[in-house]
Each structure stands twice: as C-alpha cells, then as structure tokens.
Design a protein around this nucleic acid. Structure first.
Lengths: 260, 260
DNA sequence: CACCCCGAGTGGTCCGACCACCTCGGTGAC
DNA sequence: GTCACCGAGGTGGTCGGACCACTCGGGGTG
C-alpha cells in the first residue's frame, strides 16, 4: 500500500491501467484512508499532477471522474474540495442509471424501488414527527387541488421524499430519490395520465397518509407497496403489449421462461 | 432550443455549466434518445470534439466521466463504445459509495443491504433452480472446509452472489454486489474474526441454505435478515464503543510544500 | 491458401499557453 | 477606526498541438 508496491510477480511494470485510472485510485485511497477529510481542500491540479508524476491533463481527467462520482467538488478559481461524502453526494449518479435504463431494466428498477419504498414508509410510520406528517399532508392536499400534471408530479415526488426523510435513513432516501426523479417518473407518467389513474393514485396516496397518521407500520408498508406495485404492473403490461412508446427499445423480448 | 449558436462572444451564453459538463449531457442524451445503441461505436474523440465545437481535451474529460459511470467503454487503438447498459455496468460505481462510507453511513448502507438481501433471498427461495441451489451448497461446504479468512470471505461473497442471481433481478443483484464487495466487507471482517463469529456465521449461512432448499420464502427472508442484521448490530455496537479507527495507515506520502 | 508485416487510424499522454473566476490583502474615503 | 473598493496573484477551465502506444485490416510473401 506504500509507494513501491510489492507485486509478487510481474516485474517493475506496476502500471495496471491508464495513468488517469491510477490517479483516480490514488486520490480515492487518500480519502478512504483518512488522509483527506470531508470538506478539506486538495492540492492544486498542478501540484497533484507533479506529486503523482503525471501531466496536468491526465490529472484533470481524474479530477473530472471523481467529480461526477460526487467524491470531490471543483470550485472555479478557488480549488478542489472533498465533498461531505453524504449519501446525496455519492448517490447522485444513481439518477443516471434510471435515465439510461429501458425495457426489462425499468421493471427491475421499479421492483427495487417498491421494496425500499415500502420499508421506508413503514419506518416512517413509526418515526415520523408531527411536523413531517404535516408536510406530507400538505403535499397530499396540494396534489389533489390541481390538475396540472407537472405540479402533481412535483408534489408526488415531494410527498415520497418527505416520507423517505422521515424514515431516518439518508442513504435509503438518496437511493429512492435517484430512482424516482428525472425522466424516469416523467416517462412513466406520460401516457399514464391518459387512463383513470389519477383518482387511483390519489386514493393510494391518501391510504399511505392515513397509515402514517395512524402510526401503523404494517399498513404503511402495504399501502406503499401497492402504490409502487401499481405503476410496476402497468409498466410490465405496457411492455408485454405492443409497447407503442418510442421510449421502449425494440429489443427482442424473450418472455418465455424456462419450460418444463 | 438545443441548436445553439456557435458565437463564442456575443451575449447570453446558454451554457449552464462547463463545456465538459455540457458534452457529458449531450452524449448521455444521445444514448437516452436511442441515437446510440448499446455496443455501438461512437465517433472518434476528435470528431466528437469537432461536432460539439470544443477541444479534444474537454471532450476527453467528458469521455472519461462517462467511462467511470459505466456508460461507455474506451478501447485503446480501437474506439469508444457504448456499453450494454446492463445493471452491472451502470451500478459498478456503487462500490465507490461503500468504499468511502464511514461511521453512521456504514450502518445505513448495511440497513439497505439487509432489506434488499432479505427480499432477494426470499425471491430466490421461490425461484432457485436445482443447479443454482447446488452451487450455493457448494460455496457453503467450501466455506466450512477451510480456516483461511480470505477464502472464507470469497466463498461468503459467492454464496450471496449466487442467491442474488437466483432472485432473478439483475439490478438488485448488482446493487447487492456493490454493497457487499470490496473493502466494505473486508473492513468489517477484520477484527470481526477475532470473536466467535465464525461459528455463528456458518450457522446462519446453513439456515439460509436450509430455507432455500425447503423453498420457504418467509424462512429465507428471516434467515437473511438475521444474518445481515447480525453484522449490522455488531457494527453499530462497535461505533458506540471506543472504536479504534481502522482507517489509520502509515502515511506513505506527506507532501511538504516548499517554503517561501 | 496461410502467414506475416506494416501503415493508417485510434485512444493515451504530455506540454504550453491563455482565459475566467475567486480570494485576499492593501488602499483610500468616510 | 471602519468599511467599501480594487488590484494582483492563484486557481480551475479551455484550447491547440505534438507525440506515443495500441489495434486492426489489407497487401505482400512464403
């Protein structure tokens, strides 16, 4: 783990990948080992490049990589800083997964969300504070008071976000945020509102809120699972049907499971 | 709106971020919109840079960012290709989260894993094939046949990986893989083996295997939740206790800035 | 036909320059 | 003494060019 790594075999060529890749690992290791604390400022790009014996260009690629991963943050004119390494920082990339997932992957993603969301809602039922409950109720009434799909979606997201926060697990909340936000939800909602799903969604949200107000974890879990499962089933059916949506890849669907 | 003018000067630059950031979004959008299929080869770095009107350096940073996100893959001398966008490709970054998480975040991460792992094990109990069950049993016996911690850990990981695969949700399996592998597990195991946890772990794994063989989803869920919860509780107690920092290593590099 | 070699094309690395922005200290007005 | 202003230096952001390492396919060789 020191500078001169003692590879048993394979001579002096310790270069296991590109220089940039090594730089990424080095900086990541510095943070993991505690040499760099959250919020701390890193050396300048030029100094870092000199320390690792690489060019500034390569170091910049490494910095950029760590930036998109949410590990460090570059402030123009000021310096590079380690993020707080909060759940939200590191799990921001989760949204990319949702953005780029299609077909069967979307159903799988929704299944994961159903599992986490139901558990989070159950936890929230036991831990939610009156203030948080009031906020949830506020989003519920606001959602029922308008017909603008975008506004409904915004309050829908906030509704679940508030519940996830009340569950007391920031990591779980961050994952759910990535699974719910962005085009993921928007894509599902498109065409979804063409049916009579609005009333059903409002009913489901009301059921979740009732369970939270009653401090009933099991009811909350069931209500949340049913809510997400509703969308999940709709999406599953959409896939097995003609799937007219352009967002669905024309990839050959293989619905045939193993036989006998 | 996306057809931006090329005039570098003159007024309202719609550029919301850095050029590199815009390039990342552009390429991501191309893939999301289906202009670039999985496995397809992208234009060369030089062409891409010319298309977006930026330098090759900036484009390279964008490519590097998309590479670490698992969206594209660069092959030296050949070209840049869109990955298959499988769950494993995109969720590889999840391991970084586990690597860099410490303190309360570790407990939260383990809680998420407990939720997903228990559900995955329950699903596996209903869906596992005889071949997969045999593989699980193989890792169980191999785990019990040795005292080498590393070998035990390897079979432990494979044990759970096989179960996650049997659950039939690749996305969930990929997330669990990121949550379990790497230094995350190794860090927990170090010092953990100092106690009498080996026998307990073997007993818990045997219970999971029994539930799978009996095709009992509820028993499997309970066994898996107890198994992960065991580690979770140990970690929680470790934190409340003195908890000598495990992140301390002999500083290999201590950059001494040159004096004025 | 099989094999080898080589050159064009690609990503990987490096360099140097310049620009845009932030920070901080000095300076002056009040 | 206080505070607003402002300039210089340092920082990340961008650019263009050059060269290296590697891959791949086509043409020559046996």
């Amino acid at each position: 783990m020191d500078k001169a790594d003692e590879s048993p075999r394979s001579g002096p060529a310790v270069a296991k990948g590109t220089v940039t890749q090594r730089a990424i690992e080095r900086i990541k290791a510095m943070i993991a080992e505690g040499l760099l604390e959250p919020g701390q400022r890193l050396p300048t790009e030029r100094d870092l490049a000199a320390q690792l014996g690489i060019s500034r260009s390569s170091m910049r690629e490494a910095i950029r990589a760590l930036t998109v991963l949410g590990v460090v943050e570059a402030r123009h004119g000021s310096g590079i800083y380690v993020t707080q390494l909060q759940a939200g920082d590191l799990l921001e990339t989760f949204g990319v997964v949702a953005d780029l997932s299609r077909g069967p992957r979307l159903v799988e993603l929704l299944e994961v969300r159903r599992i986490l969301e139901s558990t989070a809602t159950a936890l929230a039922a036991a831990r939610i504070t009156p203030e948080q409950l009031a906020a949830v109720e506020g989003h519920l009434t606001a959602m029922n008071a308008t017909d603008d799909p975008e506004e409904i979606l915004a309050h829908d997201l906030a509704f679940h976000r508030e519940i996830a926060a009340a569950a007391g697990n920031e990591t779980m909340a961050a994952i759910l945020e990535g699974l719910s936000s962005r085009t993921f939800r928007a894509r599902v909602w498109r065409g979804y509102r063409e049916e009579d799903a609005f009333a059903r969604t409002r009913r489901e949200h009301a059921a979740i809120h009732r369970a939270l107000a009653a401090r009933d974890p099991e009811a909350a879990r069931a209500a949340a699972a049913a809510h997400v499962g509703e969308v999940e089933e709709w999406l599953r059916a959409q896939r097995s049907a003609g799937a007219p949506s352009s967002a669905v890849a024309p990839a050959p669907v293989r619905p045939a499971p193993e036989g006998p």
